[in-house]
Amino acid sequence: MKLSDIRTHLSKFRVGIAGAGGLGSNCAVALARSGVGTLVICDFDIVEEENLTRQYFFTSQIGMMKTEALRENISRINPETILITHQRKIGSADVPEIFGGCHVIVEAFDSAEMKEMLIYSVFNTMPGVPLIVGSGLSGWGNSSGIKYRRIDDSLYICGDESTEAVENNPPLAPRVGIVANMQANVVLELLMKMS
């Protein structure tokens, strides 16, 4: 399939991204570059200097809402991508309201508890919508330890499923980027099969 046909196809779809940190910002950029039509992005945080070690933001954006900084960056990459942003902390009950109509949802939260909340909420309130979870991305090296697993048609995992983000094993750009782009790759694989 030619690039122009791929982009025309992808432009019809809407992808939800829960969190605009290391996973969410990098995944959103990959999807926008590929030509995904609409991204629904939810995050409550602002860009901090420390985030620049792995997140798709710039020094001039420190202090901005991550959702707005990402809107700015994506508009400079692919102005045709429509961004719908929500500046709030997602609770379980908000999931169908925020991500309703999305063809695929990317889990890009930081905390394991929020990841768990989203998995239960999507399963219970948006059954059948594929959710791509990121789990395990800290440190450096061990590229082959980062895996992709399909649990079933509605749940996919990207990551090493073993490293936790802690002070003495922080998340760094290369492995965060691998997982974020792996999630984006799963999204494309699913969208290219949809009509």
Binding site: G19, G21, G22, L23, G24, E107, A108, F109, D110, S111, A112, K115, E116, I119, V133, G134, S135, G136, L137, S138, R149, I151, D152, L155, I157, G159, D160, E161, S162, T163, E164, A165, V166, P171, V176
Partner: peptide
């Protein structure tokens, strides 16, 4: 049966 671990970091 499927089991997956949720690691913090994102």
């Amino acid at each position: 049966v499927h089991m997956l671990y949720l690691m913090s970091g994102g």
